[in-house]
Amino acid sequence: MSMATTAPTRRPRVNLAMIAPVVALVVLVLIGMALNPNFLSYANITNVLARSAFIGIIAIGMTFVITAGGLDLSVGSMAAFVAGLMILVMNLLTDSMGGGLPVILLGVALALFAGLAAGFVNGILITRAGIEAFILTLGTMGIYRSLVTWLADGGTLSLGYEMRELYRPVYYGGILGISWPIIVFAVLAILGEITMRHTAFGRHCAAIGSNERVARYSSVAVLRVRLMTYVLLGTLVGIAVVMYVPRLGSASATTGLLWELEAIAAVIIGGTLLKGGFGRVWGTVVGVLILSLIGNLLNLTDFVSPYLNGAIQGVVIILAVVLQRNTGAAR
């Protein structure tokens, strides 16, 4: 609502800040083309996009949470836990039902439900018990991580061979040469962008993030909208897991490590404000692609010592945000 009044004056100035992440992405692509002829090959592009899908799908949900002034540190552990649970149950079902498509459908349903439930738990404790999002999700992060370690008995949970072969095409297959994770990521990104821009829910998220009290006086159901952002994020974690499990067919204590930070970084690189009040899903998608491309470029060259990979990533993240903040500071 407050957006509507400020939008006309903001638009002309925001333009520079708006394209900053895209500029960074284009620069990375140009560097890639110069460094390695295989960079633009079909296989490499597909690999990078499909690999981005997990973090990307989660980051879409994270955009809503952050826009509404929240944060969720538990998503990486949550993904690992949901993946572990899904594999465990699918293996049990295979024993009793003898495998086949129904087991996969049940597994998928379970993953989506578990994600939703986990998001709901985060959301309800943050909104009803009034615990700061940072602390609460730090707590659940530890809980989910321990739970998956416990489920796996410290080792690795692996999907039975037969089920793995049957489920495999969900990651490796696709239509018209575009693999499923890329399609799902793209569809969710478009839906997310529409939700953020053109629905009451999206506007309410921005309103709560920019000024919670004003939003409440404007009769926005603050607690419910905030709860919904966590439920949405949890469900998207479930979807990411559905795409992740068929890749290697396993989950362990190291699954999804640091995904939460990558997702948050992607959201911020994309131009969403960490303090809330303004978010854009397409920016998040660009942010995710920037992060994946850095990793990809470093692997395709011997340009820097592998010990410095983290440093290069850090520099690019900071540069991308600096570009934006300098141009955006005029607001």
Partner: peptide
């Protein structure tokens, strides 16, 4: 040809190997 850190992690190793196969 190349040496890099896969961090004893399945997912990191998967991405690293994909990139080496392209390269």
């Amino acid at each position: 040809l190349a040496m890099d850190h896969g961090n004893w992690n399945r997912d990191t190793a998967f991405g690293l190997m994909q990139d080496w196969l392209s390269r």
